[in-house]
Simulated assay, not measured.
Amino acid sequence: MTPDFVAYPEVRRGVRGLLDGRPGTHRRPVPACPEWTVTDLLGHLALIAERVLERHGGVAPAPAGPLGVPALLDRWDHVGAQLDRLLADAGGRSGEVMVMDAYTHELDLRAALGVAPPAEHSAAAPSFAVLVRGLSGSITARGLPALRLRSAAGEAWTAGDGRPAATVTAPAHDLYRALAGRRSLGQLAALEWSAAPGRWLPAFSWGPFAPPPVPGD
């Protein structure tokens, strides 16, 4: 599994690469985060980085007034560079939720800009593992049997305890977006299920995630 201090800077590079050379996108809405613009999304990413930095004993920059996209990218990189070193010293696993959050929002940003998801990304596997753990806890808490998640390429994960009672199959990107609350209940039900999906659909609401009322990207 890729350590956090490798995956996190790749997300930052990916987000910067999406926005460099795209002036005028700062007010563009991000459909996966209905109340946010591109600027709001970047502000969130920078703020989360600052909070994690402080939890690891670092010192975040002094608060600033409203910042535009270039300044937010620079602030995030400044904080992120410090975080990379601290995460490496901590063994490379203590920032996995932050990495998942950042990678998920990189995908949100790509969808908002009409850019395809990356074919490969070092943050994908560790982020997927965090999301599967979250779904597992939700399935167990609801007293449901385990669910097998299988990508179209043949990768497989088990969410919940015990032998899976059903399998849901989809391209890996669609599975990821489903786990991260970016697919509606209708989209979830339309995936390839080996059994009726209804009993498992409520389990896709957990933590900060829930299926949106309208179809996602």
Rank of each mutant, 00 (worst) to 15 (best):
D174N: 07
G92C: 09
L109K: 02
L72I: 06
L147E: 01
W200K: 01
L131V: 06
P3D: 13
P23C: 09
G14P: 10
A119W: 11
E155C: 02
R16E: 15
H26I: 04
D174E: 14
R142M: 03
S194T: 14
V130Q: 10
V15H: 01
P145A: 07
R199C: 07
A195H: 12
R133N: 06
P9G: 05
M100Y: 08
G154S: 14
W36D: 05
L113T: 06
D101L: 01
L73Y: 00
E35L: 13
D108L: 00
L72D: 02
S127M: 08
L53N: 01
R51S: 14
P171H: 02
A156R: 08
P29K: 03
Q82Y: 07
R93W: 15
M100S: 11
L191Q: 10
G186T: 14
A123F: 03
P212E: 09
G57K: 07
R28Y: 05
P70F: 02
L113N: 04
A71G: 05
D4F: 03
T104D: 14
A111Y: 05
L109H: 00
S94G: 08
E120V: 14
S184G: 11
L185H: 10
A190E: 11
L107H: 04
W206H: 10
L19Y: 06
R51G: 13
R183Y: 01
V132F: 05
T2L: 06
H121V: 15
M98Y: 13
